[in-house]
Structures are given as C-alpha cells and as structure tokens.
C-alpha cells in the first residue's frame, strides 16, 4: 500500500461537529484558557453519538458564562432567566417525555440562585440531564464568591479568603436522590463525553459536575497564572475512584496535596417522575430512548446485574 507523505497540518475553516453548532457565532465569547468550550465540545460529541434524533434534543441553560452554551448548540435551545433553567426544563421534560432534555449551566446558576430547583428536581427524579460546569466563582460578573468557592480561596468579594464551606455537589445530588451522579474535569474529555452520553440515554435525573478552569477571575485572585496551569494541576491531583465515599470528596483547590476525586459515582435505577395524569399513556407508549438505555452497559456494573 502506498503511504501518503504528510506535510504537516492543513488549514481549513470548518470542524466536523459544526453541523450541531451555530458555527456562524464562533469563535465564542469565552476567555482563552476557559474550560467551558471543552465541556460544550463534549456535550456536542455526546449528542452526535447518542443516536437520539437531533429534533429530540433540547438544551436549556441559565445565566452566566456557562449559560452561553445553549446559544451555540444548534438544537432546540433555551436561554432562561437566572437560576430557572431547571424549572423551564422540567416543563419541557414532563410535557413531552420523548425529548432528551439537557440543562447546561454554571455552579452559581444551578446551586445558588437555582439551588432549590436542583434539589427538588433531583428528589422527584425528573428525566433531565444536568451538567453543572463548576468554575468555583461567578465568572461573568467579576469573580464574586459563590456556593462552590473553596474554603480560604480569594475572590473579589472575599479578599481575606472565603470562610464558608463550599458545596460538595456530588454528595448533595446523591443525598437528594439523583440516580446518576458523576464528576469529571474538563481534562478528562473522554470520560466526560461517555458520562454525558450515559446521562442522555438514562432515564431520570442525571447530575454531572464538570470542573473547569477560570483563569480570568478565579485564577487571577488565587495566583493561578493561566487555564493551562489549572489543567496541569488537574492532571497532577485527580484521582479516579468510582466507589468513593461521596461525603469525603470535597474539593480544596488551595491544598496542592489534596486529591480531586473524580468518577461516575452513582448509577442506579430509580423510577423517574411520572405525573398521575401521564401514567397510562407512558405505559402504552414507553419512552423510545429509555428502551435502548437498559441495554447500554457503560460503567462496569458495580451494583451487580439487575
């Protein structure tokens, strides 16, 4: 066989996943070194691989840097008011169970102003995929401390260090009953893509925390020079442990020697939310994506065969 002789890179102006993006709006507004673009890239790849029709995908996001993602993904996408991405998505998911509804938003939007909605959607196990991009502060408004800002971390509103304990998001989601809980960083692109794919195919409330660098605000206040430096620290510190005790996996970004535990922590079957009025209809006509899901073997079944 003759081998083509390569002459280095080729320049082009389109990307293979542009078909699922509003490519005319690229390059996006996010800062150099920000990880939200990578998370968006993984979501788009997962959508392309999910086998679910593009018309059945819905992307909902709130306000913030991560809230911009819905504007770039070319499926039915909604940019909602601050903190209300989940209530909006609940309406879509309950009204039309055929749809694969993905909520993409930031830690401030989902866990601070939208915290109540998060816990109650998880408690009722509504069929949503919630991707919470955690950059440890309110990035878009100037780096204020949020509910995930680590202890002693500096921000524009905590110049002497944050003295509030941060949320441990996987523990929170598990405690209120989410049947799928994962945490990855934007460096773990393949695992993140697989987790999102699993969430899209699994019925019920799937929660994925995505840890992302924010060099412009979080990094600036905490002596982290660039997004690359933060990514390098993920490479040094991340430990994959699917069976970790969720109460022990708080993130302390300031302590160089403390590990960041990542993994697909929880993957169990729980009956998703079904209103009494929708009950009989659901039994006659099961969710198309749900049927395929049960046969998907993604995480080595740590809970044993069903």
């Amino acid at each position: 066989m003759t081998q083509t002789v390569l002459t280095g890179e080729k320049k082009t102006d389109t990307h293979p996943v542009d078909a699922l993006l509003r490519a005319d709006r690229l390059p996006h507004i996010l800062c150099p070194g920000c990880g939200i673009g990578t998370a968006m890239h993984c979501i788009v790849h997962a959508m392309a691989e999910s086998g679910i029709d593009r018309d059945k995908h819905v992307c909902v996001s709130g306000i913030g840097c991560s809230g911009r993602v819905a504007g770039y993904i070319d499926v039915d996408s909604y940019h909602t008011t601050h903190g209300r991405a989940i209530p909006f998505a609940v309406g879509i998911a309950v009204q039309n169970p055929e749809l694969a509804v993905t909520v993409v938003s930031g830690d401030g939007d989902l866990t601070a102003i939208g915290g109540n909605h998060l816990i109650h959607a998880a408690r009722r196990n509504i069929d949503l995929n919630v991707i919470c991009i955690n950059n440890f502060n309110y990035g878009m408004t100037g780096g204020q401390a949020g509910p995930t800002t680590p202890l002693n971390a500096q921000s524009s509103t905590t110049p002497y260090g944050c003295w509030d304990r941060p949320f441990n998001l996987p523990h929170l989601a598990h405690a209120v009953g989410a049947p799928f809980v994962a945490r990855w960083t934007v460096l773990h692109v393949r695992q993140l893509k697989d987790a999102i794919l699993r969430a899209m195919q699994k019925p019920g409330f799937c929660f994925i925390e995505v840890i992302s660098p924010c060099p412009t605000n979080y990094g600036k206040f905490n002596n982290i020079g660039s997004g690359l430096e933060e990514m390098e620290s993920y490479r040094r510190r991340c430990v994959v442990d699917h069976d970790a005790n969720l109460a022990d996996i708080e993130i302390d970004l300031g302590q160089e020697d403390s590990p960041i535990v990542v993994g697909n922590f929880i993957d169990v079957d729980r009956e998703p939310f079904r209103p009494i009025l929708a009950g009989p209809v659901r039994e006659e006509k099961p969710h198309a994506a749900w049927a395929g899901l049960r046969k998907t073997q993604f995480v080595e079944d740590k809970n044993g065969p069903e």
Partner: peptide, 21 residues
C-alpha cells in the same frame, strides 16, 4: 493509526492545551 491534523486558525485563542497535552 496515522492522523492528518486540521487547524482552523481563525478560531484559535492560543490557550496551549493541544500543544501541552
């Protein structure tokens, strides 16, 4: 496997991720 690299220069913001990783 052998790969051909394609680059879209106008989108790049020089974050260095691809080069380092």
């Amino acid at each position: 496997p052998r790969g051909q690299v394609y680059i879209i220069p106008e989108r790049c913001k020089g974050c260095d991720f691809c080069i380092v990783f």
